[in-house]
């Protein structure tokens, strides 16, 4: 396998991991929503992310060409092998926590996906093109929620500010580049996320400010998702997610 192809496989797997982990977290909300309409609506977002994960993993399997399927990528790798961003694996928390995380992620994808559409890799570009439409809607939702919760009652404001403060330190690594991603960016395949940080900070700050929330200082940053150095949350998530699949090795479902 050429260096570029190997890097593309790694990159595609990372994007798949991001999608499946966030999709899983959102899916934990089903039947726990604050009212019926929201339960249905948030379920749609979960479906979008799992759908995205399937597209990325299917492409990863195609690149790997070693007989693995999308499910092997999702179900047969341990937490140390997962390469998702830490922000996305944090527990669902309360509704404010989930919506703040969603906003931070949605703004990230709002900036990242139009760049990925430009990729010389036709499959990555196509997946990005499809995802852009979904993300536009996701952002409208999470933005509205953060505005409502931030500028709602005293309690909702407190919960939302707390979520922002607790999640902020996990956002920095979203803009880190390593050798793999740098090589792909240089070759017009991957996105140079380091260039998105300022725009992200601006967009997020504007929304938080409008929501009467305080933008945290950049006083702490936790990193490690892309090297498999996770929080304790991912292990539990994968234990639950993978247990049926792994209890019956080699079976079809």
């Amino acid at each position: 396998m050429s260096d570029i192809k190997a890097a593309t496989l790694e990159y595609t797997t990372r994007l798949g991991d991001d999608s499946v982990v966030l999709g899983h977290r959102i899916s934990e909300w089903v039947s726990y929503g604050p009212f019926l309409e929201e339960d249905i609506a948030y379920g749609n977002v979960a479906l979008d992310y799992i759908g995205r994960a399937r597209m990325f993993y299917t492409y990863a399997a195609e690149l790997a060409n070693d007989g693995r399927t999308e499910d092997d990528f999702a179900y047969m790798r341990n937490d140390r092998e997962y390469r998702n961003l830490l922000l996305l694996e944090m527990p669902r928390g309360d509704f404010a926590y989930s919506q703040v995380r969603q906003l931070l992620a949605d703004v990230y994808y709002t900036l990242l996906l139009p760049e990925l559409v430009q990729s010389k890799d036709a499959t990555l570009s196509a997946i990005a093109a499809k995802s852009i439409k979904e993300t536009k809607y996701h952002l409208r939702r999470s933005r509205d929620w953060v505005l409502r919760l931030g500028d709602g009652t005293e309690e909702s404001h407190k919960r939302t500010q707390k979520a922002v403060d607790q999640l902020w330190g996990y956002t920095h690594e979203m803009f880190d580049m390593d050798e793999t991603e740098q090589m792909l960016a240089d070759n017009g395949i991957g996105v140079d996320v380091s260039k998105l940080h300022d725009a992200w900070r601006q967009m997020v700050s504007d929304i938080l400010t409008e929501a009467t929330l305080t933008v945290p200082e950049d006083s702490w940053a936790v990193r490690g998702g892309r090297t498999g150095y996770h929080t304790e949350n991912l292990g539990h998530m994968l234990t639950e997610m993978q247990f049926v699949h792994r209890s019956h090795p080699g079976c079809k479902w």
């Binding site: 899983h24 899916s27 934990e28 089903v30 339960d39 479906l47 399937r54 499910d71 639950e240």
Partner: peptide
């Protein structure tokens, strides 16, 4: 919904999610 987080494949996961969502 008890099984959404434990479906044995991703395909089953989207099917189950959309089914439970239909029920809502």
């Amino acid at each position: 919904g008890n099984w959404i987080t434990r479906t044995p494949s991703l395909r089953r996961k989207v099917v189950l999610l959309s089914k439970v969502q239909d029920e809502a």
